[in-house]
Write a protein that binds this DNA or RNA. Structure first.
Lengths: 411, 411
DNA sequence: AAATTAAATCACTTGAGTTGAGTTATTTCT
DNA sequence: AGAAATAACTCAACTCAAGTGATTTAATTT
């Protein structure tokens, strides 16, 4: 089964009927528990504007299916203490896969977001013929070696370099995966594994991961700047990933930051990605005739090449944060990616003081914070993708072609 | 009655029950008709994924209430020809009000978006004590003098310079309205008029107007650049206005476009608004010791001061369009505002060729287009605000304080 | 030990969408 | 011209799922 990328479905909102209402209400109950933490039926009823009876029925169903568990009663005060409902970690697992040019990262994650197993596969040849067997074998192995009860499989999330929809800027340059051009990755992988597959870009996947299980657990609106090879932006609006009309939203790597700056693969000059990305750092080392070794070590020893790059990257990223704040007005901006935590922290440090923006005011949350999924952000985010659909309420849309583009989107 | 700004409601999606489902399905049916044009019940059923029976029941109800009318049968082919349902222009009217520092514009608009009456009031003193009587009188007069059947009132939309929620950048500078600081405009106006009131900023209101009745009628995702006194951005995502977590999204006037450029009221330097706005044009005239007269005239005669400004504005706006495309990936970017159509067209002309962006590809819609509400864009948009809630399906949210800010939002 | 409070459930009611059969208004075929 | 086919619409019965009100249960307070 191919699971549609949950993005742009298309044209028209669709009507409710009892079945669709129930499925919506199930998601509402699950979301309430995920965001609020374990809660009794009555508490959930208050949160969700449903009656206690309705919540009781739905909770019964979800417990039956293994998605929820009862956690004993909470000592709360007068009255019968509520039976706490929580997401059942053993209710099932998803697999997150990150396919890069020369390696594959796979994680097995349970319903509560705990990593149950992981696997790193060196795979110098990324084309489908070589990759697919590695995936099927890897998944089987993960499920065998996972710690604890590895419940039923709830799907596979895959992160790989684009393009997924219409050709975008990210389809050029060093970030493209050879051999996958023109191939519908989701279908191919679904076929090979026999499971529901969702394909997404690294930044958006990382954002979904942080939203479901990370620092953004109760942040409904945020931007996530992702340091992969290039520079990506994951946008979460009202708790759900935002992808734009054609799936290319958040193409932040190719904002012009230096007029007439370094030429970029995309055809423009002075793109942000040419300065504030891992690729740019690698380039610096290459030009100095050095090999780029472990970044944590380099940071600990205060390597001047790294520090220089940090300064330059921070100088370009700080205005970008203000820009994102002025345009999206998020609750916070999260930095995440394959860089070590200490390096990301150093980067964030160097960005202060941030330029003025609509976010410059009394606030409860830092303007910029680091993600907590570490270097697994993309893979863990990938694993969160299949859950998003079951756990998050949404406005159902009829799949229709989108006007404004020659192609039909969302097949 | 105060109608909440339809923006950020807050925390948690709420559950469905029969009543809420019906109200959702009514909106779905209305939206289907608005977007598809007049259609038969069976056609609507196909569009909305409801059964013909359900649509028939809902349509009956909406006809009963005067929101829809039957328009005879359509000769279509075999089978019984469908009875066309259409939005009933005489089903009701809304009032759109634009309150500026020295004048008030009011329009009376019917359900189909037709302007039934208009009124321009010079009001040099904008404080509440002077403004409120003008509003109540003006509304009464509009409803008396409106052409055709002026049905029941469906609410009032008000556009005025912010701030509405948390203090933002736009609360400083020459765009602020004196006397309204700290006053909940929606409540005050609702009290004075006894009607449902929605308050919004000019750019977002204009976007809603273009979405419901203008060029963006079947564009679900777009950005609207609004030329008021300053420069605003209205963002429509999935057919609904996007305001960000704190209602300050789209603060495009204060993007830095000239490093160390002209100082701005916001505290930064080189803000876009200092170059590409009506205010900047006025400033140029002031500095030349000339009075800014009718812009259409100036354009026809090829006034060099205007042409200069057009060049400079276009030079700064073109990268901004590419920026919006890269971040939001909209179907199109619309330019609208108080500038005459010919001036906006001239501006759009001068922006070609646009920089490369994710929008540079085969497409069915122009990257930039002009709105069709002309200089009434804000007032007409204001009048569309009350309709948005009745006509557009949405995901209902429970109003909860938002984490990430010290204040509780959405009262 | 009795009263109070609140959670959860049972049994019944209600709202609204679905189902399947039946009616009506056209076009197309004979 | 008349019969058959097709499609829109509607009627009546059914079903799903939420709401309502009474009841049970388990704690705290008096």
């Amino acid at each position: 089964m191919v699971r549609k990328r949950n993005g742009r479905a298309g044209g028209l909102a669709i009507g409710n009927n009892p079945g669709r209402s129930r499925s919506h209400n199930r998601r509402v109950v699950l979301e309430a528990i995920r965001l609020h933490g374990p809660a009794g039926r009555a508490e959930i009823a208050r949160l969700s504007h449903l009656t206690a009876q309705a919540v009781s029925n739905i909770a019964g169903e979800l417990i039956e299916e293994g998605l929820l568990i009862e956690q004993g009663r909470l000592r709360t005060g007068r009255g019968q203490p509520p039976v706490q409902l929580a997401v059942n970690p053993d209710g099932g697992t998803t697999v997150g896969v990150e396919i890069a040019a020369d390696h594959i990262v796979m994680v097995l994650v349970d319903l509560a977001g705990n990593k149950r197993a992981e696997r790193f596969i060196a795979a110098p040849n990324a084309d489908p013929a070589h990759t697919l067997p590695l995936l099927t074998d890897g998944i089987a192995e993960l499920r065998q070696n996972g710690t604890g009860t590895v419940g039923r499989s709830l799907g596979i999330g895959v992160v790989m370099p684009g393009p997924f929809e219409i050709e975008g800027l990210s389809s050029v340059g060093p970030t493209t995966l050879p051999g996958w051009a023109g191939i519908d990755a989701a279908s191919v992988i679904a076929e090979a594994t026999g499971e529901a597959v969702t394909v997404e870009n690294d930044a958006t996947a990382a954002a979904v991961g942080e939203r479901l299980h990370g620092v953004a657990r109760d942040v409904r609106d945020f931007c996530l700047v992702y340091f992969g090879v290039g520079l990506g932006l994951g946008i979460v609006v009202d708790g759900r990933p935002y992808r734009g009309a054609f799936g290319n939203a958040g193409e932040v790597g190719h904002l012009t930051v230096v007029p007439n700056g370094k030429p970029c693969f995309c055809g423009n000059r002075g793109c942000l990605e040419r300065y504030a990305s891992l690729y740019a750092l690698q380039e610096r080392f290459r030009e100095s005739g050095r090999a780029l070794t472990d970044l944590s070590d380099l940071h600990r020893t205060g390597d001047p090449l790294l520090l220089d790059w940090l300064d330059e990257a921070a100088r370009h990223l700080a205005p970008m944060v203000a820009l994102l704040e002025n345009l999206f007005d998020p609750q916070t901006v999260i930095f995440a990616g394959t860089l070590p935590d200490v390096v990301i922290d150093a980067l964030i440090d160097r960005m202060t003081p941030l330029p003025l923006s609509v976010a410059s005011r009394r606030r409860a949350m830092a303007r910029v914070m680091r993600g907590e999924s570490g270097q697994y952000a993309a893979a863990l985010g990938a694993a969160a993708l299949p859950l998003l659909e079951t756990l998050t309420p949404k406005l159902d849309m009829a799949p229709v072609a989108v006007k404004g583009d020659a192609h039909a989107v969302g097949s």
